[in-house]
Nucleic acid binder design. Structure first.
Lengths: 334, 334
DNA sequence: TTGACCGACTAAAACGTTTTAGCATAGCCG
DNA sequence: CGGCTATGCTAAAACGTTTTAGTCGGTCAA
C-alpha cells in the first residue's frame, strides 16, 4: 500500500501541488490562498491521514530537523539521563534526536560523525574523545552547529557546556581533609579526556593546598574497556597494599565497581574509610552507609545545550562561541 | 561550504553520474565498468572525502537504513541497556537506530509512530502501551516490519520477543513461600501492559498453588508518572499498616523507591523481610544485604529482536509471525 | 557483408517536496 | 480607457540520488 503524497491530496482537492504545500506549511495567508480552499484542503488532509514525507522535505530544504547526539555509552546512567532530558527538550521544539555511543573508540566516533553528516543532521551534540579534533573541525568549517559537552577539546573553538570538574573534585578532597583524612586515594580511568584530567588536577591541587604530598601510588588508573572483574581485582589490590582512609572515584561506574570490591574484601565504608563518587547514582543513596557524590546539574546542562543549539540554528550566521561551566554540587551523605 | 555531490565527482572524473553511482554501490563489475575507470573514480572519492547524501538516497530507494526504537524511558536502566545492545548489533549490520521514549503517554507514542513513519524508517521495534493498537496495525497493514518487545499486545498479530514474566514472577513468589513466608506483598504499577499483568498473574497463581488466599490489601499499585516522594510515602504506609514478611517489586525503579522507603522507616531487609526485584539493577548487588532479582536475558532479547527484524527486512514477503518467550532467571542473593 | 552480441558507458526519469516566477482576473485611480 | 496593484492560484525547477533503457563502436560467426 503506497502512502499518500502531496500530489494525491492536490488531485483530490482539485488544486495544484503548490497550493497544498503552501497550506501545509502555514503560508496560505501570506500567499493569499482563499479561506474556502484552505478549509477544503485541510479537511482532505485530515481525513486521509496524510503526512508529508520528511525525506523529500529534507532533500529539498537541506535540513532534517534531526540533531545528532554522540555520547560515550547510553547505558551509563549519566548519559542516559542527559539523553532523556535533551530528547525531551528537543522534542518540544520540533527536533528529533538520533544518538549513538562511541564506547570511547576513535574509529567508531569518526564513523558516527560521517554517518550523521551523510544524514544531514542539523546540529551535533558531542561528548568528544581525543583523536576526533580534525573531524569536528571539519564539521565546523562546513558551518554546522556543534556543541561539545561533558568534556572539552582544547584545540577546538566551539561552544561547550560542562560542569566545573576541577572545583568539584577539589572540594571533595578538601572535605576529606577537613575530616582529618590524610591518605586519600583516587581511582580514575586511563582515558585521556579533559573532564577526567580536571578531576585529577582538582585532586592534586587540593592535596597541595593542604600541604599533603601527592603520592602516585595512591592513584589507580583503570583501563577503560576492561572487564569489571579485573577492575575489582585492581581496586582490591590497591586497598590491601596501601594505607587509605578516603577515596574519590572519578566516575560513577568506577565507584560501583569499587564498592563491590570493598564489600568483597570486607572493608567497611564509614568513619575509617570515606568514599565520594563522581556522578551520582541510585545505588549510592541506597548503600549502607549512604555514599556521598558529586552531582552534576543534569537538567541545567541539558537546558543549556539545547539553548545554545537553538541559538545557533536560528541565527544562520556565526553565533558567538560560548563556554558554559556549571558548578557541580557535592552531596554529603550520612 | 556546499558539500560535494555525486555530480562533482562525475565531473572531476570525466564520467557520467551513472557510472559513479554504479561504482559507489559496488555494481561496477556487474555493469561492466572498466577497471581503469573504477580505480580513477575511487581515488577521487577517497581524496575528496565524498559521502553520498543519504537523504537523496532514501528518497530514491524508499528505504532509510534506520530502525525506529520506541521505548518507555531511555533513562531506565533496563531500556538503556537493551537500547545499547540493539544499537550495537544493528550498527554492525549497517543500520542506525533512532529512538524515543513514550513515557507511557499514548499521545506521545502515537506522535512518535507518525514521526518515524514520515521519516520512512525501515522497521519498528516497539515496547508498546495499551491504546496504540490501531496505529501499530496501520504500520503492519502498510507492510512495515514491526517487532514488539518486553510487552505484547494481544490484539496485534505480529512478532514479539519478551521474557517469561509469568513464570519468573511465579517462581519468585514460590521461593518466598519455600522460605516459609506467608504475607507476601506485591508492589506494582498501574499501567495496563501485558508484562505487568503477567507478573501479577504469576503472583496470584503462586499463592493459589500453595493454598494462600490472595489479599488485595497486600497489592499496591503505584501510579506511573507520580513523584518518587509520593511513591515512597505509599510504600511506607503499606509496610506500616500491614504485616508483611516478603515483597516482590514489579519493576526495578519501584524496588529502588521501595528500598529507600524501607530504609527511611528503618525496616531492615533480611530474614524477616524478603525482597525480590523484577529487573536487576546495580544497586541491588551493592545493597546490604544484597537484593535478589529477576534478570531478563538482555543480550538474548536484543539478539532475537535484531534477528527477527533482519529476517523480515530481507524476505520482502510476509515473514511468519514469531513469538519468542525467553525464560528469565531469578538470582537469589545473600 | 551482415547481423547479433558484447563491452563500456550514459541520458533521463523518478522519488516527494519547496519555492521562484509568473499568469489571469478584477478593481481602482487618474 | 490605460496602467497598476491585489488577489488567487499554478508550472516547473531544484534538491542528490538510483535505475531503466538506451547508445555506440567493435568483434565474431555465418
Amino acid at each position: 500500500m503506497k502512502s499518500l503524497s502531496i500530489k494525491d491530496i492536490a488531485v483530490k482537492a482539485n488544486v495544484s501541488i503548490t497550493t497544498v504545500s503552501f497550506i501545509i506549511n502555514g503560508k496560505a495567508k501570506e500567499k493569499s490562498i482563499s479561506e474556502a480552499v484552505i478549509e477544503k484542503v485541510e479537511k482532505i488532509i485530515e481525513e486521509s491521514g496524510y503526512k508529508p514525507n520528511q525525506i523529500a522535505r529534507s532533500l529539498r530544504t537541506g535540513n532534517s530537523n534531526i540533531i545528532g547526539l554522540i555520547i560515550e555509552d547510553i547505558s551509563n546512567s549519566f548519559f542516559s539521563r542527559i539523553a532523556r532530558l535533551i530528547e525531551d527538550k528537543a522534542y518540544k521544539r520540533g527536533y528529533k534526536i538520533i544518538y549513538s555511543s562511541t564506547e570511547n573508540n576513535v574509529d567508531k566516533a569518526k564513523e558516527l560523525i560521517n554517518m550523521f553528516k551523510s544524514r544531514k543532521v542539523d546540529a551535533y551534540i558531542i561528548s568528544p574523545i581525543k583523536g576526533i579534533e580534525e573531524d569536528i573541525q571539519m564539521l565546523l568549517d562546513d558551518g554546522n552547529p556543534v556543541i561539545l559537552f561533558d568534556r572539552n577539546l582544547s584545540d577546538i573553538n566551539t561552544s561547550y557546556v560542562g560542569a566545573d570538574h576541577f572545583n568539584a573534585s577539589h572540594q571533595s578532597i578538601q572535605s576529606f581533609i577537613d575530616q582529618g583524612k590524610k591518605n586519600i586515594a583516587l581511582v580514575t580511568t586511563d582515558i585521556n579526556v579533559e573532564q577526567i584530567i580536571e578531576r585529577c588536577d582538582g585532586y592534586k591541587k587540593a592535596l597541595e593546598d593542604n600541604g599533603i604530598k601527592y603520592d602516585d601510588n595512591l592513584v589507580l588508573k583503570i583501563h577503560f574497556n576492561q572487564e569489571e572483574r579485573e577492575t575489582i581485582a585492581q581496586i582490591q589490590e590497591l586497598f590491601e597494599n596501601k594505607k587509605i582512609d578516603a577515596v574519590l572515584f572519578a566516575t560513577n561506574y568506577l565507584a560501583i565497581s569499587g564498592l563491590k570490591a570493598l564489600k568483597q574484601i570486607n572493608k567497611k565504608v564509614g568513619d575509617d574509610l570515606g568514599v565520594i563518587a563522581y556522578d551520582d547514582h541510585e545505588a549510592f543513596e541506597l548503600h549502607t552507609p549512604r555514599i556521598s557524590a558529586v552531582q552534576q546539574p543534569l537538567e541545567e546542562i541539558a537546558e543549556t545545550i539545547i539553548k545554545l543549539i537553538l541559538n545557533q540554528l536560528s541565527s544562520k550566521g556565526k553565533s558567538p562561541v560560548e563556554e558554559v561551566i556549571i558548578p557541580a554540587r557535592l552531596v554529603i551523605r550520612d
